[in-house]
């Protein structure tokens, strides 16, 4: 996992210094004087607050990493496919993009907007709850078929990068023809007939094959035009 090392060091320093002060107090039990109060203020206040701040930032950054998402066994196939250099799934193709990289799960599934981070974290807690209550003992093979999004994947997340306003995007006939449907979410970018499923191994093989064939035909027709 990619950590910001300086923050780790800050957290470890604060933890070590604070723990030393507290252990020394517990062993020696000095009288409560002005000097001991100041030491305890550092041991119980200043240094733990430093540790909590560094730890929270580190924790927050860690939650964006693909290995974090893949740390629940039911997400291992999704994380492995994203990390597979030979995979042609949308998830993997985005994972190979430097702008997404190790954070591709978060980048595609995060809610954007003013309170996006908060709503994403609330959604993350929902995932943890669902894992503990429903999926903890479900075998991976079964989970891959049954896990689903709470709501259809919003095109707005794709449009965060692919705005649909650039000429190069509208030059593609399919884009131009379905512009309003794409913007309104009536047609999903990550559907079988368009850019393919983000995690195709979660779909039945015949559905994926049919979608791939349709897409190939459409691309061939586009090349002929």
């Amino acid at each position: 996992m990619n950590h910001a090392a300086p923050l780790d060091l800050v957290a470890y320093f604060c933890a070590a210094a604070s723990a030393s002060i507290l252990v020394v107090y517990l062993v020696r039990r000095p009288a409560l004087t002005a000097v001991s109060r100041v030491w305890l203020l550092f041991g119980l206040g200043v240094l733990p607050i430093g540790l909590a701040t560094a730890g929270n930032i580190q924790g927050y950054e860690a939650t964006k990493q693909r290995p974090f998402c893949g740390s629940c066994h039911v997400m291992v196939p999704h994380a492995s496919d994203s990390n597979d250099p030979k995979s042609l799934s949308l998830a993997s193709r985005h994972g190979r993009n430097k702008l997404f990289g190790e954070e591709n799960c978060y980048m595609c599934h995060a809610d954007y907007g003013m309170y996006g981070t908060i709503t994403t974290k609330i959604g993350g807690m929902h995932h943890v709850w669902a894992y503990l209550t429903e999926y903890r003992n479900v075998p991976v093979e079964q989970a891959v078929k049954t896990i689903h999004l709470y709501e259809p994947y919003p095109n707005a997340n794709c449009m965060h990068c692919h705005s649909t306003h650039l000429e190069i995007w509208n030059r593609q006939p399919d884009h131009k023809a379905a512009l309003e449907e794409v913007r309104s979410g009536k047609i999903s970018c990550a559907s079988g007939g368009c850019h393919g499923f983000a995690h195709p191994f979660t779909k039945p093989a015949d559905v994926v094959q049919k979608a791939d064939a349709e897409r190939r035909d459409r691309l061939d027709a586009g090349a002929d035009r």
Binding site: H3, A19, L26, G55
Partner: peptide, 29 residues
């Protein structure tokens, strides 16, 4: 009370260090 405060502080430090050292869902939460 101060001793209790120190013990609680040490427990808090242990949990926070665990999450920094091994950031997985349970530890971070």
């Amino acid at each position: 009370l101060i001793a209790l405060s120190c013990v609680l502080g040490l427990a808090a430090i242990a949990l926070m260090v665990w999450s920094v050292a091994d950031p997985r869902p349970l530890q971070v939460i």
